[in-house]
Design a binder for these strands. Structure first.
Lengths: 196, 196
DNA sequence: TCTTGCAGAACGAATGATCGTTCGTAAATC
DNA sequence: GATTTACGAACGATCATTCGTTCTGCAAGA
Protein backbone atom coordinates (compact mmCIF):
# COMPACT_ATOMS: atom_id res chain seq x y z
CA UNK A 1 0.00 0.00 0.00
CA UNK A 2 1.41 3.31 -1.01
CA UNK A 3 -0.77 4.99 1.58
CA UNK A 4 1.07 3.33 4.44
CA UNK A 5 2.87 6.35 5.74
CA UNK A 6 3.46 4.85 9.13
CA UNK A 7 2.57 7.25 11.88
CA UNK A 8 5.33 7.99 14.31
CA UNK A 9 4.63 7.07 17.91
CA UNK A 10 4.92 10.73 18.70
CA UNK A 11 2.09 11.47 16.34
CA UNK A 12 -0.03 8.70 17.81
CA UNK A 13 0.54 10.16 21.25
CA UNK A 14 -0.57 13.60 20.10
CA UNK A 15 -3.72 12.25 18.49
CA UNK A 16 -4.64 10.08 21.42
CA UNK A 17 -3.96 12.96 23.79
CA UNK A 18 -6.36 15.15 21.87
CA UNK A 19 -9.06 12.52 22.24
CA UNK A 20 -8.27 12.14 25.93
CA UNK A 21 -8.31 15.89 26.55
CA UNK A 22 -11.60 16.11 24.73
CA UNK A 23 -13.14 13.30 26.77
CA UNK A 24 -12.02 14.33 30.25
CA UNK A 25 -10.67 17.86 29.95
CA UNK A 26 -6.99 18.78 30.10
CA UNK A 27 -6.72 19.06 33.87
CA UNK A 28 -8.61 15.86 34.58
CA UNK A 29 -6.62 13.85 32.04
CA UNK A 30 -3.54 12.22 33.52
CA UNK A 31 -0.38 11.09 31.81
CA UNK A 32 -1.12 7.62 33.13
CA UNK A 33 -4.45 7.69 31.28
CA UNK A 34 -2.61 8.70 28.16
CA UNK A 35 -0.01 5.94 28.52
CA UNK A 36 -2.85 3.42 28.78
CA UNK A 37 -4.47 4.67 25.60
CA UNK A 38 -1.33 4.44 23.52
CA UNK A 39 -0.47 1.02 24.92
CA UNK A 40 2.36 1.90 27.24
CA UNK A 41 2.57 0.42 30.70
CA UNK A 42 4.21 3.41 32.28
CA UNK A 43 3.52 7.11 32.02
CA UNK A 44 7.24 7.68 32.15
CA UNK A 45 7.63 5.96 28.77
CA UNK A 46 5.81 8.86 27.15
CA UNK A 47 8.74 11.09 27.91
CA UNK A 48 10.91 9.29 25.38
CA UNK A 49 8.71 11.02 22.78
CA UNK A 50 7.42 14.22 24.26
CA UNK A 51 8.81 16.94 26.46
CA UNK A 52 5.80 17.58 28.70
CA UNK A 53 2.04 17.38 29.00
CA UNK A 54 1.66 21.03 28.18
CA UNK A 55 3.71 20.71 25.02
CA UNK A 56 0.86 18.62 23.63
CA UNK A 57 -1.72 21.26 24.50
CA UNK A 58 0.47 23.96 22.98
CA UNK A 59 0.75 22.12 19.71
CA UNK A 60 -2.97 21.41 19.49
CA UNK A 61 -3.89 25.02 20.21
CA UNK A 62 -1.36 26.62 17.93
CA UNK A 63 -1.94 24.19 15.06
CA UNK A 64 -5.65 24.93 15.08
CA UNK A 65 -5.12 28.66 15.43
CA UNK A 66 -2.94 28.43 12.32
CA UNK A 67 -5.68 26.68 10.39
CA UNK A 68 -8.07 29.55 11.04
CA UNK A 69 -5.44 32.19 10.38
CA UNK A 70 -4.54 30.67 7.05
CA UNK A 71 -8.19 30.19 6.21
CA UNK A 72 -9.18 33.80 6.73
CA UNK A 73 -6.01 34.99 5.01
CA UNK A 74 -6.97 33.12 1.86
CA UNK A 75 -10.57 34.29 2.01
CA UNK A 76 -9.57 37.93 2.37
CA UNK A 77 -7.41 37.68 -0.72
CA UNK A 78 -9.38 35.50 -3.07
CA UNK A 79 -13.06 35.94 -2.29
CA UNK A 80 -14.81 39.10 -3.45
CA UNK A 81 -17.82 40.63 -1.75
CA UNK A 82 -18.50 40.60 1.98
CA UNK A 83 -21.47 38.27 1.60
CA UNK A 84 -19.36 35.64 -0.09
CA UNK A 85 -16.58 36.20 2.41
CA UNK A 86 -18.82 35.54 5.39
CA UNK A 87 -20.27 32.50 3.67
CA UNK A 88 -16.74 31.23 3.10
CA UNK A 89 -15.82 31.86 6.72
CA UNK A 90 -18.83 29.90 7.92
CA UNK A 91 -17.85 27.06 5.63
CA UNK A 92 -14.29 27.25 6.95
CA UNK A 93 -15.48 26.82 10.53
CA UNK A 94 -17.85 23.99 9.72
CA UNK A 95 -15.30 22.11 7.67
CA UNK A 96 -12.59 22.33 10.28
CA UNK A 97 -15.06 21.26 12.96
CA UNK A 98 -16.08 18.20 10.94
CA UNK A 99 -12.59 17.25 9.78
CA UNK A 100 -10.75 17.66 13.08
CA UNK A 101 -13.49 17.16 15.65
CA UNK A 102 -11.26 16.20 18.52
CA UNK A 103 -8.47 18.71 18.19
CA UNK A 104 -10.89 21.55 17.56
CA UNK A 105 -12.71 20.70 20.78
CA UNK A 106 -9.47 20.95 22.73
CA UNK A 107 -8.59 24.16 20.91
CA UNK A 108 -11.95 25.62 21.83
CA UNK A 109 -12.25 24.53 25.42
CA UNK A 110 -8.80 23.88 26.90
CA UNK A 111 -6.62 26.76 25.71
CA UNK A 112 -6.96 28.50 29.04
CA UNK A 113 -4.68 25.96 30.66
CA UNK A 114 -1.75 27.18 28.60
CA UNK A 115 0.85 28.81 30.79
CA UNK A 116 2.23 32.31 30.44
CA UNK A 117 4.22 32.79 27.27
CA UNK A 118 1.97 30.52 25.24
CA UNK A 119 -1.29 31.78 26.64
CA UNK A 120 -0.52 35.32 25.57
CA UNK A 121 0.63 34.16 22.17
CA UNK A 122 -2.59 32.21 21.71
CA UNK A 123 -4.79 35.10 22.80
CA UNK A 124 -2.99 37.43 20.41
CA UNK A 125 -3.68 35.06 17.53
CA UNK A 126 -7.31 34.76 18.48
CA UNK A 127 -7.71 38.49 18.87
CA UNK A 128 -6.19 39.03 15.45
CA UNK A 129 -8.57 36.52 13.89
CA UNK A 130 -11.66 38.00 15.52
CA UNK A 131 -10.59 41.46 14.47
CA UNK A 132 -10.33 40.50 10.83
CA UNK A 133 -13.68 38.72 10.95
CA UNK A 134 -15.25 41.73 12.60
CA UNK A 135 -13.88 44.10 9.97
CA UNK A 136 -15.59 42.10 7.24
CA UNK A 137 -18.87 42.26 9.14
CA UNK A 138 -18.51 46.00 9.70
CA UNK A 139 -17.80 46.56 6.05
CA UNK A 140 -20.95 44.65 5.17
CA UNK A 141 -23.01 46.71 7.58
CA UNK A 142 -21.60 49.96 6.22
CA UNK A 143 -22.31 48.92 2.67
CA UNK A 144 -25.89 48.06 3.59
CA UNK A 145 -25.44 44.43 2.67
CA UNK A 146 -25.82 43.28 6.25
CA UNK A 147 -28.39 44.15 8.84
CA UNK A 148 -27.65 47.25 10.90
CA UNK A 149 -26.58 45.92 14.27
CA UNK A 150 -23.75 45.84 16.77
CA UNK A 151 -20.83 44.19 15.03
CA UNK A 152 -19.53 42.46 18.15
CA UNK A 153 -22.91 40.85 18.73
CA UNK A 154 -22.96 39.67 15.13
CA UNK A 155 -19.39 38.40 15.32
CA UNK A 156 -19.77 36.37 18.49
CA UNK A 157 -23.17 35.04 17.57
CA UNK A 158 -21.75 33.73 14.31
CA UNK A 159 -18.57 32.38 15.89
CA UNK A 160 -20.53 30.42 18.47
CA UNK A 161 -23.29 29.21 16.21
CA UNK A 162 -21.17 26.28 15.03
CA UNK A 163 -19.60 25.35 18.30
CA UNK A 164 -21.76 22.27 18.70
CA UNK A 165 -20.67 20.51 15.50
CA UNK A 166 -17.37 19.15 16.73
CA UNK A 167 -19.23 17.69 19.66
CA UNK A 168 -22.26 16.37 17.83
CA UNK A 169 -21.03 15.35 14.39
CA UNK A 170 -20.34 11.71 13.61
CA UNK A 171 -19.61 10.43 10.11
CA UNK A 172 -22.41 7.88 10.26
CA UNK A 173 -25.14 10.44 10.76
CA UNK A 174 -27.82 10.55 8.14
CA UNK A 175 -26.89 14.18 7.60
CA UNK A 176 -24.06 15.01 5.21
CA UNK A 177 -21.55 17.78 5.89
CA UNK A 178 -22.84 19.56 2.82
CA UNK A 179 -26.39 19.51 4.15
CA UNK A 180 -25.23 20.91 7.47
CA UNK A 181 -23.35 23.68 5.69
CA UNK A 182 -26.36 24.57 3.62
CA UNK A 183 -28.74 24.66 6.57
CA UNK A 184 -26.48 26.72 8.80
CA UNK A 185 -25.58 29.21 6.10
CA UNK A 186 -29.23 29.66 5.25
CA UNK A 187 -30.19 30.07 8.87
CA UNK A 188 -27.50 32.56 9.71
CA UNK A 189 -27.14 34.51 6.53
CA UNK A 190 -30.72 35.22 5.76
CA UNK A 191 -30.80 37.01 9.04
CA UNK A 192 -27.69 38.87 8.27
CA UNK A 193 -28.61 39.91 4.73
CA UNK A 194 -30.52 43.16 4.79
CA UNK A 195 -33.92 42.87 3.22
CA UNK A 196 -35.70 46.07 4.18
CA UNK B 1 -30.85 49.48 56.46
CA UNK B 2 -33.80 47.23 55.84
CA UNK B 3 -32.01 45.70 52.88
CA UNK B 4 -29.37 44.14 55.08
CA UNK B 5 -30.35 40.53 54.66
CA UNK B 6 -27.00 39.21 55.73
CA UNK B 7 -25.73 36.45 53.50
CA UNK B 8 -24.82 33.28 55.27
CA UNK B 9 -21.21 32.20 55.01
CA UNK B 10 -22.42 29.14 53.17
CA UNK B 11 -23.98 31.30 50.53
CA UNK B 12 -20.84 33.38 50.20
CA UNK B 13 -18.84 30.20 49.70
CA UNK B 14 -21.18 29.03 46.95
CA UNK B 15 -21.02 32.35 45.13
CA UNK B 16 -17.27 32.65 45.40
CA UNK B 17 -16.88 29.06 44.28
CA UNK B 18 -18.89 29.76 41.14
CA UNK B 19 -16.58 32.64 40.33
CA UNK B 20 -13.52 30.50 41.02
CA UNK B 21 -14.79 27.60 38.91
CA UNK B 22 -15.51 30.03 36.10
CA UNK B 23 -12.04 31.58 36.28
CA UNK B 24 -9.94 28.43 36.51
CA UNK B 25 -12.23 25.51 35.71
CA UNK B 26 -13.57 23.05 38.27
CA UNK B 27 -10.64 20.64 38.20
CA UNK B 28 -8.00 23.36 38.33
CA UNK B 29 -9.70 25.18 41.20
CA UNK B 30 -8.52 24.00 44.60
CA UNK B 31 -10.25 24.21 47.93
CA UNK B 32 -7.27 26.23 49.12
CA UNK B 33 -7.98 28.78 46.41
CA UNK B 34 -11.57 28.89 47.56
CA UNK B 35 -10.61 29.33 51.22
CA UNK B 36 -8.41 32.27 50.22
CA UNK B 37 -11.21 33.94 48.34
CA UNK B 38 -13.68 33.73 51.19
CA UNK B 39 -11.07 34.90 53.71
CA UNK B 40 -10.34 31.64 55.48
CA UNK B 41 -6.79 30.61 56.29
CA UNK B 42 -7.40 26.91 55.98
CA UNK B 43 -9.22 24.88 53.38
CA UNK B 44 -10.40 22.63 56.17
CA UNK B 45 -12.46 25.49 57.57
CA UNK B 46 -14.72 25.30 54.56
CA UNK B 47 -15.99 21.95 55.74
CA UNK B 48 -17.79 23.57 58.65
CA UNK B 49 -20.17 24.88 56.01
CA UNK B 50 -20.17 22.50 53.07
CA UNK B 51 -20.06 18.77 52.62
CA UNK B 52 -17.69 18.53 49.65
CA UNK B 53 -16.31 20.30 46.61
CA UNK B 54 -18.63 18.45 44.31
CA UNK B 55 -21.67 19.42 46.34
CA UNK B 56 -21.04 22.97 45.16
CA UNK B 57 -20.89 21.92 41.52
CA UNK B 58 -24.03 19.86 41.91
CA UNK B 59 -25.98 22.78 43.28
CA UNK B 60 -24.79 25.16 40.57
CA UNK B 61 -25.65 22.72 37.79
CA UNK B 62 -29.03 21.67 39.09
CA UNK B 63 -30.10 25.20 40.04
CA UNK B 64 -29.41 26.43 36.55
CA UNK B 65 -31.03 23.44 34.93
CA UNK B 66 -34.13 24.27 36.96
CA UNK B 67 -34.16 27.83 35.69
CA UNK B 68 -34.31 26.64 32.10
CA UNK B 69 -36.85 23.93 32.86
CA UNK B 70 -39.17 26.38 34.56
CA UNK B 71 -38.62 28.90 31.79
CA UNK B 72 -39.62 26.59 28.98
CA UNK B 73 -42.51 25.24 31.03
CA UNK B 74 -43.99 28.70 31.35
CA UNK B 75 -43.42 29.52 27.70
CA UNK B 76 -45.11 26.36 26.53
CA UNK B 77 -48.16 27.18 28.58
CA UNK B 78 -48.56 30.93 28.20
CA UNK B 79 -47.07 31.93 24.86
CA UNK B 80 -49.05 31.24 21.70
CA UNK B 81 -47.53 30.66 18.29
CA UNK B 82 -44.23 28.96 17.60
CA UNK B 83 -42.61 32.17 16.43
CA UNK B 84 -43.37 33.91 19.69
CA UNK B 85 -42.31 30.83 21.63
CA UNK B 86 -38.90 30.72 20.01
CA UNK B 87 -38.48 34.44 20.54
CA UNK B 88 -39.35 33.95 24.20
CA UNK B 89 -36.87 31.10 24.50
CA UNK B 90 -34.09 33.21 23.01
CA UNK B 91 -34.94 35.96 25.47
CA UNK B 92 -34.90 33.42 28.29
CA UNK B 93 -31.39 32.31 27.42
CA UNK B 94 -30.07 35.82 27.03
CA UNK B 95 -31.60 37.03 30.27
CA UNK B 96 -30.28 34.16 32.31
CA UNK B 97 -26.84 34.60 30.75
CA UNK B 98 -26.80 38.29 31.64
CA UNK B 99 -28.27 37.92 35.11
CA UNK B 100 -26.21 34.96 36.33
CA UNK B 101 -23.06 35.21 34.24
CA UNK B 102 -20.83 33.24 36.56
CA UNK B 103 -23.07 30.38 37.51
CA UNK B 104 -24.28 29.91 33.95
CA UNK B 105 -20.69 29.58 32.79
CA UNK B 106 -20.07 26.80 35.28
CA UNK B 107 -23.37 25.19 34.33
CA UNK B 108 -22.36 25.26 30.66
CA UNK B 109 -18.75 24.19 30.89
CA UNK B 110 -18.17 22.19 34.06
CA UNK B 111 -21.14 19.82 34.34
CA UNK B 112 -19.11 16.96 32.96
CA UNK B 113 -17.17 16.74 36.22
CA UNK B 114 -20.28 15.64 38.06
CA UNK B 115 -19.94 12.06 39.23
CA UNK B 116 -22.30 9.18 38.49
CA UNK B 117 -25.70 9.65 40.00
CA UNK B 118 -25.70 13.39 39.45
CA UNK B 119 -24.21 13.32 35.97
CA UNK B 120 -27.01 11.10 34.69
CA UNK B 121 -29.62 13.22 36.40
CA UNK B 122 -28.18 16.34 34.82
CA UNK B 123 -28.04 14.80 31.35
CA UNK B 124 -31.64 13.67 31.65
CA UNK B 125 -32.73 17.20 32.49
CA UNK B 126 -30.79 18.61 29.58
CA UNK B 127 -32.12 16.02 27.19
CA UNK B 128 -35.66 16.81 28.26
CA UNK B 129 -35.11 20.52 27.72
CA UNK B 130 -33.60 20.07 24.28
CA UNK B 131 -36.41 17.76 23.32
CA UNK B 132 -39.07 20.29 24.18
CA UNK B 133 -37.19 23.05 22.36
CA UNK B 134 -36.82 20.81 19.33
CA UNK B 135 -40.52 19.98 19.27
CA UNK B 136 -41.36 23.66 19.03
CA UNK B 137 -38.95 24.07 16.14
CA UNK B 138 -40.35 21.03 14.34
CA UNK B 139 -43.86 22.30 14.76
CA UNK B 140 -42.80 25.60 13.21
CA UNK B 141 -41.19 23.84 10.29
CA UNK B 142 -44.27 21.68 9.72
CA UNK B 143 -46.56 24.69 9.82
CA UNK B 144 -44.39 26.45 7.26
CA UNK B 145 -43.54 29.25 9.68
CA UNK B 146 -39.91 28.25 9.87
CA UNK B 147 -37.44 27.44 7.15
CA UNK B 148 -37.39 23.85 5.99
CA UNK B 149 -34.25 22.41 7.51
CA UNK B 150 -32.92 19.74 9.83
CA UNK B 151 -34.42 20.45 13.23
CA UNK B 152 -31.34 19.31 15.16
CA UNK B 153 -29.16 21.70 13.20
CA UNK B 154 -31.58 24.50 13.94
CA UNK B 155 -31.80 23.59 17.62
CA UNK B 156 -28.10 23.41 18.30
CA UNK B 157 -27.28 26.43 16.23
CA UNK B 158 -29.77 28.45 18.24
CA UNK B 159 -28.69 27.01 21.59
CA UNK B 160 -25.07 27.87 20.93
CA UNK B 161 -25.62 31.25 19.38
CA UNK B 162 -25.80 32.90 22.83
CA UNK B 163 -23.06 30.99 24.51
CA UNK B 164 -20.66 33.92 24.40
CA UNK B 165 -22.79 36.37 26.38
CA UNK B 166 -22.05 35.07 29.85
CA UNK B 167 -18.39 35.32 29.00
CA UNK B 168 -18.43 38.68 27.27
CA UNK B 169 -21.14 40.68 28.97
CA UNK B 170 -20.26 43.29 31.57
CA UNK B 171 -22.78 45.75 32.99
CA UNK B 172 -20.64 48.73 32.05
CA UNK B 173 -20.71 48.02 28.34
CA UNK B 174 -22.21 50.67 26.14
CA UNK B 175 -24.65 48.01 24.95
CA UNK B 176 -27.82 47.42 26.94
CA UNK B 177 -29.27 43.97 27.50
CA UNK B 178 -32.32 45.03 25.53
CA UNK B 179 -30.20 46.01 22.55
CA UNK B 180 -28.42 42.68 22.65
CA UNK B 181 -31.74 40.86 22.75
CA UNK B 182 -33.05 42.81 19.82
CA UNK B 183 -29.97 42.26 17.67
CA UNK B 184 -29.72 38.56 18.35
CA UNK B 185 -33.41 37.89 17.82
CA UNK B 186 -33.32 39.78 14.56
CA UNK B 187 -30.20 37.99 13.40
CA UNK B 188 -31.44 34.53 14.23
CA UNK B 189 -35.13 34.76 13.58
CA UNK B 190 -35.11 36.46 10.26
CA UNK B 191 -33.15 33.51 9.07
CA UNK B 192 -35.62 31.13 10.64
CA UNK B 193 -38.80 32.76 9.33
CA UNK B 194 -39.78 31.37 5.96
CA UNK B 195 -40.02 34.07 3.28
CA UNK B 196 -40.26 32.19 0.00
C1' DT C 1 -22.79 43.31 85.68
C1' DC C 2 -20.08 39.29 85.76
C1' DT C 3 -19.56 34.52 85.10
C1' DT C 4 -20.48 30.27 83.02
C1' DG C 5 -21.64 27.10 79.40
C1' DC C 6 -22.45 25.93 74.85
C1' DA C 7 -22.43 25.69 69.90
C1' DG C 8 -20.82 27.09 65.64
C1' DA C 9 -16.68 28.41 63.29
C1' DA C 10 -11.87 28.26 62.37
C1' DC C 11 -7.61 26.18 62.87
C1' DG C 12 -3.48 23.09 62.04
C1' DA C 13 -1.70 18.78 61.48
C1' DA C 14 -2.14 14.65 59.20
C1' DT C 15 -3.97 11.05 55.74
C1' DG C 16 -3.94 8.69 51.60
C1' DA C 17 -4.31 9.41 46.87
C1' DT C 18 -2.77 11.16 42.61
C1' DC C 19 -0.29 14.29 39.92
C1' DG C 20 3.74 15.40 36.32
C1' DT C 21 8.24 14.39 35.85
C1' DT C 22 13.24 12.47 36.54
C1' DC C 23 16.58 8.95 36.45
C1' DG C 24 19.15 4.83 35.92
C1' DT C 25 18.69 0.65 33.64
C1' DA C 26 17.01 -2.92 30.51
C1' DA C 27 14.98 -4.30 26.30
C1' DA C 28 14.26 -3.70 21.55
C1' DT C 29 15.41 -2.02 17.04
C1' DC C 30 18.36 -0.97 13.31
C1' DG D 1 27.26 -2.24 18.66
C1' DA D 2 24.83 2.04 18.84
C1' DT D 3 20.61 4.37 19.40
C1' DT D 4 16.00 4.58 20.36
C1' DT D 5 12.25 3.13 23.31
C1' DA D 6 10.26 1.20 27.38
C1' DC D 7 10.41 0.23 32.07
C1' DG D 8 10.01 0.73 37.28
C1' DA D 9 11.06 3.03 41.19
C1' DA D 10 11.15 7.24 43.19
C1' DC D 11 10.56 12.41 43.94
C1' DG D 12 8.33 16.37 45.45
C1' DA D 13 4.14 18.73 44.93
C1' DT D 14 -0.58 19.20 45.44
C1' DC D 15 -5.07 17.44 45.95
C1' DA D 16 -9.71 16.80 48.83
C1' DT D 17 -10.85 15.54 53.07
C1' DT D 18 -10.77 14.03 58.28
C1' DC D 19 -9.93 14.79 62.98
C1' DG D 20 -9.16 16.68 67.38
C1' DT D 21 -8.50 20.98 69.28
C1' DT D 22 -8.99 25.85 69.97
C1' DC D 23 -11.25 30.08 69.41
C1' DT D 24 -15.34 33.14 69.28
C1' DG D 25 -19.81 35.11 70.22
C1' DC D 26 -23.79 34.86 72.60
C1' DA D 27 -27.35 33.51 75.98
C1' DA D 28 -28.59 31.99 80.56
C1' DG D 29 -27.86 32.12 85.37
C1' DA D 30 -26.02 34.30 89.50
Amino acid sequence: MASTLKKSKKQIIFEEAARLFKDKGYKAASMRDLADRVGLEQASSLYSHIRSKEEILQKICLDNASKFSEGIQEIEQSVVGVGAQVRALIRLHIRIAIKDTTSVTVFNDEWRHLSPPYLEEFLALRHDYEDRFRKIIEKGIDQGEFRGMNSAVALYTLLNAFRWIHYWYKPDRELSPEAIEKDIINLLLNGLANKS
